[in-house]
Each structure stands twice: as C-alpha cells, then as structure tokens.
Design a protein around this nucleic acid. Structure first.
Length: 463
DNA sequence: CGGATTTGACCGGCGC
DNA sequence: GCGCCGGTCAAATCCG
C-alpha cells in the first residue's frame, strides 16, 4: 500500500453569493499532477490561467450581482466607483498572485539546483572517502613493506606523498563543489555504496563501530496522515506487522524494494497520543539512485541522521539539560526535531505535525537522554533554520496544512528551504571537517553567509 | 500467474 | 534458564 496518499490536496476558493453566503467557486487540486506532489516549489503552482479565469469570471459575476442590488438606491457614478474599486482590488490581487507564482517558479529553480548540487557533492564525498579507504589500504601495505626493512627516511617520504595525495583529492573536492552537474547526469553517475559515508578514522575497529552506528542510527518522522503510510517517493514492501508494547496500533515493517538488496527499512506506527499522527522510522542507507520524488524525504532524513552522528560524544557530565537547550539556545518551544539516545539506537525525530505558526523549531522532549551535539551540528543548524524559515516555506506549509497529508509538503518545504540546506551544510561540513581537516570544506561558504545565499557551495543529499 | 500482503513461527538480545 | 519483546522470515493468502 505505497501509493500516494488518498487525501485531497485541494484548496477551496470561496466567494459570497447574492445572499452573502459562502459558496465554492473552484477547487484547486495542487497535486493533480503526480510530479507536482513531490515538489515543494510547485506546491503553490495553481492551475494558473484556467483557475484564475474562473475566479475572474466569478468575480465579475459578483460585481454584476452587486450592481443589481445597488440599483435601487444608488446612482450611476456610485456604480462606476464600486466597479472601479472592485476591479482595482482584483487587479491588485491578481498582480500579487502573479508575483507569488513567479516566486514559486524561482524557488523551484532553486530546488532543482540544490538537488543537483546534492547529487554532485554526495558523489564526490563518496568517491573521496572511497579513495581514502584505498589509500589506507595502500598505507598499511606500505607500512608492512617499510617494516620489512626500508629505512626511516623512505618511510617518511611514503607517508608524506600519501598525505599530499589526500590533500590533492580534498582540493579537487573543494574545487568541484562549485561546479554544476545536471541531476540526470549525476543520477546516472551515482555510485552505489558510495552513499554510505565511510568516515576516516584511526583504526579498523572504530571504522566498524562507526559503520554499525550509522546503520543503527534512525530517523523518525512524525507526520499527520490518515493513510496507513506516507508517500515518500520510494517503493516499499511490507514484510511484517507486530503489536508493539504500549501502543494499541500495530507497527508495520517495510523494506525498500527499489533495488535488490537495498538495506533500508522503515517502521510505520500510529502515535499513541494522536492517532492521526503517523510515525515513520527510517533505518539504513539506500544502495541505489533515488528518484527525484524521493530526494526530499531522503535528504532530510539522511541529513538528520548525519547530524545525529556528527557531534562529539557527551562532554564532561555526558548529559545536556534539555530545558537549558530549549531555554537558551533555542528560543522557541514548538516541535521540529528531537534527538534521543535513550532508545537502543540513536534516533532523530523530525516532527512535521506542527502548525504553520509553530513549525520549524526544535524541542528536546522531557525525560529524554540528550547528547550534546555541539553548536555546529544540531543546535546551530536547526536554530538557524528556526530563525530563517518563516517566509518562503510558509506557503508550502500553509497549503499542506490545508490538506491532511503534511508529509510531502513539509519535507519538501524543509528540503527546499535554502536556509535549512545551509544549516545542514554547516552540519555536514563540521562532520567532514572534524574527521579530516584537510578536506577543508569551508562552512563560511555556506549559503547563509555567501552573497548567493540560496545557491550555496555545499548542500546535502543523503541515502 | 506473479507480485504484494498477511500472519504465525522463529530468532536473538536483554533483564531477572 | 526462562520469559518478554522487537524484529524478521516464510508459507499462505490475496489481488490485479
């Protein structure tokens, strides 16, 4: 049951009839086009002309009706004044509507570019990390040779040359991060298994541990939906269902079927607090290209997972007071994302159920064991997001709120928001920067600070 | 008929 | 060792 949500994605435009009663003029199905449903920037792309013409016609009708009502006790000049006034208002509205449409066109173009950069960077990071793995293998082989009798001087030369090779790769990455590639090309060039970041570490053990952690890390998405599953662009096959303890609703288990052997799984369960809230928990990394429709959700969840794994381990006391975080770092208390390590696996929860006025903020749930992920990762990224979000994505959030399926809209809104992308980019750059300073992705070049804030050098595509 | 879903059985981790 | 629980498997069933 993985089809698109069975909800109506419509906004009803009302007008007043002769008796001042509201009646439906037209219903705009924003998501009639399947492609549109996957793209936040098209969220507001009404069936422009046709619908607008209907509205215009209807408006004229009402103007006419109004005149009829006025004829009994108004003069011709009064009529003319009223007509002009209403016409002017209509023109103002229409120009505003055109402006919004243009804005959305612009946002769509931006989203496409961001997705393109996502593909490009992810691929480069994957290639780089793969290369580093190879280098490590070469170094260990070299070490063996060196230990077999080669002098100290030669050993040093070998290590230096390897170091330079790595730096050269890093420079290449930095240089390429500004170059453009079409999404289609990147889609073709996508290298399976490079999606899973194999972070540089000092030992094989820690490598394996990190890999295990990455695999175990989960991203939970809370979304309001009456459907049994949210549409996220991927193909899933149900392989089990269980009653989980403490929740009257069954938990369904799905695995990704877009490619043979894709390890990604997800669990879907209704919230016990609000049966309209669907909690989808993703685990693992896709080993195949994702269709554009799936990129929004995938990049959002993957970025969240990366942030989860990015920060330093607990400092000093190992804990962070949630109230302190919400009270000082984050000025808001509405839901956006929370982190929990109390569960068997570290989990990020993205809450897409908030209302338009309270979305985009972060909350540490009371009683949750909370790791300190550092200002560069969670707090910084999400705090920046919370500061910048109101604006472009409000329309998307608003329209999605008017329907019952928040997921695509909210996720796409998050992913399409350049400020959030910037924040994610900062988080990612801190990950890579921490792991290998030589890579040197400059977070100062993130969209937030660059002159072209919406087209930053670094964005993130995951899974 | 083939792919997707359902559902009871099975397995491993964990706490007692 | 035992029971509980979450997660997965796989045969049976459903459905287009």
């Amino acid at each position: 049951m993985d089809g698109p949500s069975d909800h109506d994605h419509t906004v009803i435009i009302n007008s007043l009839d002769d008796h001042g009663e509201k009646r439906v003029v037209n219903e705009m199905d924003f998501f009639a086009d399947e492609n549109c449903s996957k793209d936040a920037s098209t969220m507001f792309q009404f069936k422009k002309e046709s619908n607008f013409d209907c509205v215009e016609q209807e408006l004229r009708l009402n103007i006419s009706t109004g005149l009829n009502l006025l004829t009994t006790n108004t003069t011709a000049s009064d009529k003319s004044t009223v007509v002009n006034k209403i016409s002017n208002e209509f023109l103002v509205l229409k120009s505003e509507f055109d402006r919004v449409n243009m804005e959305n066109e612009r946002l769509r173009a931006m989203l496409n570019q961001i997705n393109s950069k996502n593909y490009s960077l992810q691929m480069q990071i994957g290639t780089l990390l793969q290369h580093q793995q190879n280098l490590k293998g070469a170094i260990s082989t070299g070490d063996r040779k060196i230990n077999d009798g080669v002098g100290e001087e030669e050993k040093q030369r070998f290590l230096v040359s390897k170091s330079m090779e790595e730096k050269s790769m890093a420079n290449e990455l930095q240089k390429n991060s500004t170059s453009e590639k079409s999404p289609e090309k990147n889609f073709q060039e996508w290298i399976p298994n490079n999606k899973v970041p194999k972070f540089h570490s000092s030992s094989k053990d820690t490598d394996q541990a990190a890999e295990a952690t990455i695999k175990k890390a989960r991203v939970s998405v809370r979304a309001r939906s009456e459907a049994s599953i949210i549409s996220d662009g991927c193909q899933w096959r149900k392989y089990g269902q269980k009653m989980a303890k403490g929740n009257p609703f069954p938990r369904a288990y799905y695995r990704c079927t877009m490619a043979v052997g894709c390890p990604v799984r997800k669990q879907v369960q209704r919230s016990i607090e609000d049966r309209l809230v669907l909690i989808t928990t993703y685990e693992g990394n896709h080993n195949h290209p994702l269709p554009p429709a799936a990129m929004s959700m995938a990049s959002t969840t993957s970025a969240a997972a990366s942030m989860l794994l990015s920060g330093p381990m607990p400092s000093a006391d190992g804990f962070m007071n949630p109230n302190m975080l919400t009270g000082t770092i984050l000025p808001y208390s509405a839901n956006f994302a929370s982190i929990s390590a109390s569960a068997p696996f570290p989990t990020v929860t993205l809450d897409l159920t908030t209302t338009p006025t309270t979305h985009s903020h972060m909350q540490m749930l009371p009683g949750q064991f909370t790791r300190d992920y550092g200002p560069q990762a969670i707090a910084h990224a999400l705090y920046n997001h919370s500061r910048f979000l109101p604006g472009v994505s409000d329309a998307a959030f608003f329209s999605s709120e008017s329907s019952h399926d928040m997921t695509n809209a909210a996720t796409a809104a998050i992913a399409s928001d350049p400020k959030f992308t910037a924040a994610i980019a900062e988080a990612l750059s801190s990950i890579i920067g921490n792991l290998n300073p030589d890579i040197g992705i400059d977070s100062k070049n993130s969209p937030k600070n660059s002159s072209d804030r919406n087209m930053g050098n670094l964005s993130f595509a995951g899974k």
